[in-house]
Amino acid sequence: MTFVTKLSFASGDRDVLAETVEELKADLERKGAECKGPHASPADTVRVPQYKRLRAGDEFSPWSYSIYKRSMEIHGSDDIARDVVGRDFADSIHIEVEVDRKKPLGHRRD
């Protein structure tokens, strides 16, 4: 069975996110891991209301910011994927990891 490690990155800082993901891709290629991505998703814009007082009513214009997302997949190379997941990334980057098990073609389910 082959394991596929799916990495999802999100950050409000596009430059730090792009730099981090590109460095990670270069490291994975240098180590010989099969890697797909990074794939960019459209940015999400989040709007946060700002109230002038503690009760509803008077409001300032909403504060808005963008969240940028990238995703990657590492196929096989379990030891390399484990090293990647254990890395320290910038505090401004949120990372989600999902591991799937892929069975070879023709494999019967018992």
Rank of each mutant, 00 (worst) to 15 (best):
P49M: 10
K52W: 01
P49G: 09
R53F: 14
K36L: 14
K31G: 11
V4F: 02
M72T: 08
K52R: 12
Y51H: 15
E59A: 10
A56K: 13
D79A: 13
G32E: 07
W63C: 11
Y68Q: 00
V97G: 08
G86F: 08
H94N: 03
Y68W: 01
T45F: 03
P42F: 03
P38Y: 11
G32L: 11
R14A: 11
D110K: 00
A26K: 10
W63H: 15
V99F: 00
I80E: 03
K6C: 12
G12L: 05
G37P: 09
E73G: 09
T2Q: 12
T5M: 02
R82Y: 06
G86P: 03
G106C: 00
K69C: 04
S64L: 01
A81R: 08
A10G: 06
T5G: 04
Q50G: 12
R14P: 07
V85E: 14
A10E: 06
D27P: 08
E34A: 15
D15Q: 13
K69P: 04
V85L: 10
P104T: 01
E98H: 12
L17C: 04
R87G: 08
A43I: 12
A10D: 06
E98P: 00
H94Q: 06
I67E: 02
I93G: 00
P62Q: 12
P38C: 09
L17Y: 05
V97L: 07
C35Y: 01
V4T: 11
I74R: 07
R14V: 13
R82G: 00
C35G: 06
S64M: 05
G32V: 13
S8D: 06
A33M: 08
V99H: 01
L105V: 01
V4P: 00
L28S: 05
M72R: 07
R109L: 01
H75P: 02
A40G: 14
L7S: 02
S77T: 08
G86S: 14
E29C: 04
A33E: 01
I95A: 00
K6P: 03
P62D: 15
V99M: 05
R47I: 09
F89Q: 06
E23R: 08
D100W: 04
A56M: 11
I93Y: 00
S66Q: 14
K52L: 11
A90V: 02
W63D: 11
D79T: 14
G12C: 05
E19K: 02
G57D: 08
E59D: 03
R53T: 15
G106I: 05
E98C: 09
C35A: 12
S41V: 12
D27N: 11
S77Q: 04
A56H: 12
A40H: 14
K25R: 13
D88E: 15
D44M: 15
V16T: 10
R30M: 13
L7M: 05
V48N: 02
H75C: 10
D79H: 12
D110I: 00
I80H: 07
V4E: 04
L17S: 05
A18E: 08
A10L: 03
D27H: 10
H39Y: 15
S71H: 09
M1K: 07
E29S: 05
H39P: 03
